[in-house]
Design a protein around this nucleic acid. Sequence first.
RNA 1: GGCCCCAUGGUCUAGCGGUUUAGGACGCCUGGUUCUCAGCCAGGAGGACGGGGGUUCGAAUCCCCCUGGGGUCACCA
Length: 486
Amino acid sequence: MVRVRYAPSPTGSPHVGNIRTALFNWVFARHHGGKFIVRIEDTDQNRYVPGSEEDILFSLRWLGIDWDEGPEVGGPHAPYHQSQRLEIYRKVAHELVEQGKAYKCFCTPEELDQMRAEQKRMGAAATMYDRRCRKLTPAEVKAREADGLPYVIRFAMPLEGTVSYEDLIHGHTEFRNALTDDFVMLKSDGFPTYHLANVVDDHLMQITHVIRGDEWISSMPRHLNLYKALGWETPQFAHLPLLLGADKQKLSKRHGAVQFVEFIREGYLPEAMFNFLALCGWNPGDDREILTREEIIREFSLERVSDNPFVFHHEKLLWMNGHYLRELPKERLIELTIPYLQEAGLLPKELTPEQRTYAERVIPLEQEKMKLLSDVVALTDFFFTDQLKIDEKAVRKWYSEPHIPQMLEELIRRFEALEPFNTEQIEQVIRGVAEWLGVKAAEVIHPVRVALSGRTTGPSLFEMIEVLGKRRVLQRLRNAQKWIPR
RNA sequence: GGCCCCAUGGUCUAGCGGUUUAGGACGCCUGGUUCUCAGCCAGGAGGACGGGGGUUCGAAUCCCCCUGGGGUCACCA
């Protein structure tokens, strides 16, 4: 039985790369009919950010990623918060001390800083704990404990030899033990470090595959030796390519939106995010790029995960979101976009039935143009407000044309009398007026569009007029009469 | 700097020794559709296998070196 886990630490709102890792784990579990476990690695009291766990779980649910064991749902290996499992780690750490595979270290942060500074001054390639406390005699340790000195527990790394494993993505990888220092397993506050807690829980929770980002590869000698010291079987490891910014540096805040909730806020759709994230390092092996969640689950395999870093460019995601937006049923598009109009102040918090019907007619008009749900605001604002942003250049271009004064008058006259006020009738009026004036239809259409929306682009004019309604149309046409230079 | 990872057009990616004059997608350009924009359809440009050695009848595909980029070197994860 495949058992994988997503083990975020609540140190901030989750990053896209982080959610990508969750998605790969989930898809892998679902592909194999295995279990997907969420475990909160809240072992750093200093970096804990309230609310981030909520953001993490919200993001997963928003994407449609459910978990078989974890926070809020529980499971046979509860608790799933590491902060509630402290005794377990403590016990393991002390057992290793008793077996001589780990030791208490009484070095203070100041001493360690000094040691590192010294090493740098000596021109050391890398700073590394010099294992001074590893040499402490039992009596010395006892004395310090009796003095009440705080200590950490460090793992006693083998001084020689190598350790290796077969990465499911990178293949055979080997490390020399001597190059890794005696890392801290248990901090002086009694909390474990990632290395300890992660290994212990992965073992206890019977994780079969550890799928995580490439930045963890360098910790493999620690984890592998820990498993060995504990006499535990190691799970399989798969290290996912890093997500990079446009400058090829690890994706971070300075690359624009990277927090997953920011993407949600901007108006990306879950299906687009799911599809795109799945393609961040994986592909189905053919030319398909638009894939449903079911297809992704069916065809996913770690063998098809690329091992080179993925530069995260928003353009393609935007394109993909536009694609999914165009496929969206109208009802859902309306549901999803109304909140953006409300937030922009174009619609009130509570809609009257009339306002709702009006919005339902407006929004689909611009569906094919949206790349983000939030685009609805800029695309349709002129339907909801009379405070038009006027394209002055377009006004200058059209409103000095000789046919305009007559055109406006005639349109107003005919529209006033028009019944029913629908698209076909409206088109007839527009074309009729053009003919009557002896100008091309476009020479009526364009200036009218400017009069009604303030701009030169927008939905099909005839439909737009119908939706705007006679009252607004007449009012705006009359207003446009003021634009005629005298 | 040590260790580790990576290396196909601007970006993502197919390719796992010959079927490749290296395919697809995003972006870009042109044309068509059309009341504009978008969309859609049809084309196109960019001039990608980082460089050098091998192995082989044959290399983008295997090996080595170099170069470049990245990750990591905390009582953070």
